[in-house]
């Protein structure tokens, strides 16, 4: 069930990111029902959860809420990636990074190192 909800979350977010327009639960439900049978309350619950997580903001319009994405998918991705790279003080236990960030001088030195050895020259 948890997995199903997680999947629904990403479907709803993708829809809202793609349309980039404010939408009510009913709007989203109409979109989702094109592909599957789903209950109003389920969608409402998930959208409420996304609001709690800070991914959607909402305003009451009439008797319902109108939801809107807080930031674009690109901006959100950039933020998440930046956080993962920064890794806070606890770099040890969270994410093992492929490479640290480099200064331009260091990057040049790396390119030079690769130039010195022809690729495929001395592999295993």
């Amino acid at each position: 069930m948890a997995r199903g909800l997680g999947e629904l979350e990403s479907t709803i977010m993708d829809h809202l990111w793609a349309t980039n327009e404010p939408a009510t639960v009913r709007d989203v439900l109409a979109h989702l029902r094109r592909e599957r049978a789903i209950a109003y309350t389920t969608v409402m619950t998930v959208m409420d959860k996304l609001h709690t997580k800070g991914l959607l903001r909402r305003e009451p319009v009439g008797r319902a809420y109108v939801y809107e994405v807080v930031s674009s998918k690109e901006a959100y991705t950039a933020e998440v990636m930046r956080a993962s790279l920064a890794g806070s003080g606890n770099r040890a236990a969270t994410l093992v990074h492929f490479l640290e960030r480099l200064t331009p001088e260091e990057a040049k030195a790396l390119e030079a190192a690769l130039q010195v050895y022809p690729p495929g020259g001395r592999d295993t």
Partner: peptide, 28 residues
């Protein structure tokens, strides 16, 4: 050689972030 080339590609195509500072020696 593939891993080395990949390391260079990944390490160089990135906006330098002064805040995160040094550590390039390990990459080298």
């Amino acid at each position: 050689a593939h891993l080395a080339a990949a390391l260079v590609r990944l390490a160089t195509g990135r906006a330098p972030a002064a805040a995160l500072g040094a550590g390039g020696e390990t990459a080298l």
